[in-house]
Nucleic acid binder design. Structure first.
Length: 456
RNA sequence: GUGGUUGUAGCUCAGCUGGUUAGAGCGCCUGAUUGUGGUUCAGGAGGUCGCCGGUUCGAACCCGGUCUUCCACCCCA
């Protein structure tokens, strides 16, 4: 009969304490988003498959959760594909909907669909769960929250400058000091590929370069060679591997390397613009760093690429990412509209704050006082007081059963309720309440007015 | 999707090369204390050893499968 209940791989339940902490993060992010002028939208959990499929590359398609058609779906299945055991070919005929994989593509769809109602540039934020059929690991789930802020309809590089500041503002608000905002530019990467004469191998080249800190210089070169990039070509950008020092020092080296490439020079120009603005404006707690090995989201980023890593010493993948995509809405038939945006990984930020003990103690909402239940007459007397307290903004409740005193006290204790109020025959007679401080154990007889002032 | 890893009470973990009734600490429940919790003391409940199958006289332990956990690829928040 009773099967052991469980939840799917990579999903989680959240306890009241966990929800409180998650809300604390969301609240801070939302506050900053709104301060920067972003407005919230929400989109459905699932989209038409064709909206999502093919937007994240082949790998992405594999990781999209497909929803099986309702009804007798096999009747409409592609018989050929089924006979050939070709899952990829069969899928469109048995699944027409899929769970949202990220918030960017649904946003692009939203913009195109509502273009006549939207005032551009449009700054929207969106905080919703997304789903990926990935293999779970630490900080990697199959259902997780993204908190995105994007601007569409503005080519201005000031947007990038604003996003760097937004990252800084959020992590400062969360008291998470020392995060590194890594920035790169797709044009730099294109420049590299151009300089070595391998423009058609841009993706292979950058994917390999992205692994520099993981597999080292030799590993990267080896992988590049395996992808058909000659050692002479690699030699031309040898300096890239030794790139270090300040932002401007790296820029100087890049200028040298990318001199022959027009697109490369353009990338440098953009990075310099952003960096000098940030130098002038200053960041509160975050660091801005140029990282030419950064190559995420290459499928659509065309300009700036952002990634945020946790403070040093915390083993966690990136806690945020983003970038500029010049033709965000082109895939849905609305071309020439540029987008740029960033994302915060709520679940990972949670793990980092937890590890560093950065959640304030006050995140969990709790009642101020529990009234002990001595019976119906006493309960009514208490509820009148509780009504007053609530009207004054104080959270309070009555223990629902006329249980043993010990049980009621223990309940207050386990719930970490700071005060207990007792009102029995004697208190009622004197129009008083006995207020007990659960931490110190002190208790005193007070009037209703005193009760309100003491519990505020 | 590939390779590996983990799974014993609510929690953290013991359990000797397979051998009777599977243990500890913490937590939980009851009482000492029928208007006083957090301390103490006494007692108690709780496990188809992830699940299914196999080998064996006998399996928590060995084998296969499956689910789950974590890790490395891939990719990514």
């Amino acid at each position: 009969m009773a099967q052991k209940p469980s939840i799917p791989k990579g999903t989680r339940d959240f306890s009241p304490a966990e929800v409180a902490k998650r809300n604390y993060i969301i609240q801070n992010i939302r506050e900053q988003f709104e301060k920067f002028g972003f407005q919230p939208i929400e989109t459905p959990s699932f989209e038409n498959s064709e909206t999502l499929m093919g937007k994240y590359g082949e790998e992405g398609d594999r990781l999209i959760f497909k929803i099986l058609n309702s009804g007798d779906f096999l009747k409409k299945a592609d018989a050929d594909a089924y006979a050939q055991q070709d899952s990829i070919k069969l899928t469109p005929s048995i699944s027409e909907k899929a769970l949202r994989y990220d918030l960017t593509v649904p946003f692009a769809r939203y913009v195109v669909q509502h273009r006549n109602e939207i005032e551009f540039p449009f700054k929207r934020y969106q905080i919703q769960p997304v789903w990926r059929a990935d293999r779970p690991q630490k900080g990697r789930f199959r259902e997780f929250f993204q908190c995105d802020a994007d601007v569409v309809g503005s080519d201005s590089l000031w947007q990038e400058v604003e996003f760097v500041q937004l990252y800084d503002a959020v992590f400062t608000a969360l008291d998470l000091k020392g995060v590194t905002i890594k920035i790169n530019n797709r044009k730099i990467l294109s420049g590299f590929a151009e300089v070595i004469g391998e423009s058609d191998k841009l993706i292979d080249f950058t994917v390999a370069l992205d692994k520099l800190d993981k597999i080292g210089e030799e590993g990267v070169k080896k992988e590049m060679q395996e992808k058909g990039i000659s050692s002479e070509a690699i030699q031309k950008i040898q300096k890239v591997f030794g790139l270090k020092g300040s932002f401007s020092k790296k820029i100087e080296v890049l200028k040298d390397i990318l001199e022959p490439s027009e697109i490369g020079r353009k990338g440098i120009e953009e990075l310099e613009f952003i960096n000098s603005a940030i130098q002038e404006l200053q960041l509160n707690t975050a660091n801005l760093d140029l990282d030419v090995t950064l190559a995420r989201g290459l499928n659509y980023y065309t300009g700036a690429i952002f990634e945020v890593s946790a403070p040093e010493g915390v083993a966690m993948g990136s806690i945020g990412g983003g970038g500029r995509y010049d033709d965000l809405t082109g895939i849905f038939g609305m071309s020439g509209v540029s987008g740029v945006g960033i994302s915060f990984g709520l679940d990972r930020i949670y793990l980092v704050l937890e590890e560093l003990g950065l959640f304030p103690e006050t995140v969990a909402r709790n009642i101020q006082a529990l009234f002990i239940n001595f019976g119906n007459k006493e309960s009514l007397y208490c509820l009148k007081a509780i009504k007053e307290l609530r009207a004054g903004g104080i959270a309070a409740e009555l223990y629902p059963e006329e249980a043993k005193m010990k049980k009621q006290m223990a309940h207050a204790n386990k719930r970490d309720i700071p005060f207990v109020v007792l009102a029995g025959a004697e208190e009622i007679e004197n129009s008083k309440f006995t207020l007990k401080n659960m931490k110190t154990g002190e208790q005193s007889a007070v009037t209703l007015e005193e009760l309100v002032t003491k519990l505020v």
